[in-house]
């Protein structure tokens, strides 16, 4: 099961080797449970971060594996490039839609590329 955002996976990572240095970008910038805000900007031509989540606050549920190329760039057919992390982010529907009529527990889960996430204090 994926840990819920309010309960980060309590298991310590199994890492017998400690001397390995990760390349830049290899370590995820965010961890499950981290509060994040979706960026607000307007790429021209192609994007995969829908308008309705921009500027909203959420919580990282999990880090998606494996790493992948930024799909905004991939849309132009490079078929290559440095990979980054996607994160599955939880956002309450009450935060997305003012006056949301369902249960306050109802929420969205959506994959967002690392460059779109900002740390948020809440």
């Amino acid at each position: 099961m994926h840990p819920s955002p309010s309960e980060p996976d309590p298991r310590p990572p199994f890492r017998p080797v400690t001397s390995v240095v990760l390349a830049l970008g290899e370590a995820p910038a965010f961890r499950p449970g981290d509060p994040v805000r979706i960026g607000v900007r307007f790429p021209v031509g192609h994007y995969r971060v829908p308008r309705y989540i921009r500027g909203c606050d959420g919580v990282v549920e999990s880090v998606i594996t494996p790493m992948a190329v930024n799909n905004e760039i991939e849309g132009f057919g490079h078929n290559a490039g440095s990979k980054g992390h996607y994160y599955r982010v939880a956002i309450p529907l009450t935060a997305l839609w003012p006056g949301y009529a369902g249960s306050p527990a109802d929420n969205l889960r959506i994959e967002v590329f690392e460059t779109w996430l900002e740390r948020s204090s809440t």
Binding site: H46, E74, G75, N79
Partner: peptide, 13 residues
């Protein structure tokens, strides 16, 4: 990889 999935999406847009 003549036309990848993401290019197809971008092209439709």
């Amino acid at each position: 990889k003549i036309i990848n999935t993401e290019e197809k999406r971008r092209g439709v847009e």
